[in-house]
């Protein structure tokens, strides 16, 4: 289909288990034959034969238990992880909404961190400077914007991060369980901004354990169970079945 911006075709991902080498060169060399044997044979299957498409402008939810493979899917979309077999196609620039404080330096001010974060997300300095006032305004941080971010509460950090990503006109937005922070007012504002994104045609991939947020934001939902695709469909249908199984 031509209007799909994310296409997974029979994607599987296995990791070698790195534990034996992460213990260090010393351990690795002492147990060399075993270590090499382990490296060849120990595999962890994170995803099995996943096929789905996300259309342009769609809000696509991913639900499932911890360790089901949700974050691996986000990694594949962000193209920081390569699939073992199968094919991942992504059209357009991907923006991950980073977890609290990632890509921020605690000693720098909020303003300086906006520039830093924007650059890491792939913008030139000029592109960020054009937007910086709008970002600051949306964040509602006021005078705090010139304070070092180590003085920020977690809610304020979340506001800063979300303000950056939501102001820069993302094409594909990846959100990994991020809206759980901040106060009710800001959460509402974020949810509104996401609904706003949907209207503007931004593609959103949303990973969450918050079923209410999933119902509210998503057009379609994928349920992952034990590294496999369990079902895909409308939010109400999938969430209902998921909750029944959890109970």
């Amino acid at each position: 289909m031509s209007d799909s911006v994310i296409i997974f075709e029979r994607v599987s991902k296995t990791y070698p288990l790195y534990s034996h080498i992460a213990r260090g060169i010393k351990t690795f060399l002492i147990n060399l034959p075993k270590a090499i044997h382990d490296m060849r044979n120990s595999k962890f299957q994170a995803l099995k034969d996943i096929t789905f498409e996300v259309k342009k402008g769609e809000s696509f939810g991913i639900i499932g238990k911890n360790g089901a493979g949700k974050s691996t899917i986000l990694g594949l979309i962000a193209q920081v992880i390569k699939p073992t077999t199968g094919k991942v196609t992504v059209k357009g620039k991907v923006f991950p909404l980073l977890e609290l404080g990632a890509g921020f330096h605690p000693e720098l001010s909020g303003r300086e961190n906006i520039v830093l974060n924007g650059i890491l997300l792939g913008f030139t300095k000029k592109e960020i400077m054009d937007k910086i006032e709008e970002i600051i305004e949306f964040s509602e941080l006021g005078d705090f914007i010139d304070q070092p971010v180590r003085t920020y509460s977690s809610g304020m950090l979340a506001r800063l991060g979300f303000s950056i990503i939501s102001t820069v006109e993302p094409e594909i937005l990846l959100i990994d369980e991020i809206l759980a922070v901040g106060d009710a007012h800001f959460q509402k504002k974020c949810t509104n901004r996401m609904i706003d994104f949907r209207k503007r045609g931004v593609t959103i991939v949303f990973v969450s354990h918050n079923m209410d947020a999933v119902r509210q934001i998503c057009d379609r939902v994928m349920w992952l169970q034990n590294h496999e695709l369990k079902m895909i469909g409308s939010p109400d249908e999938v969430v209902e079945k998921y909750l029944i199984q959890q109970a």
Partner: peptide, 9 residues
């Protein structure tokens, strides 16, 4: 780590 795991730069 948390940057490299999330952002492709």
């Amino acid at each position: 780590a948390n940057l490299i795991k999330k952002v492709n730069f």
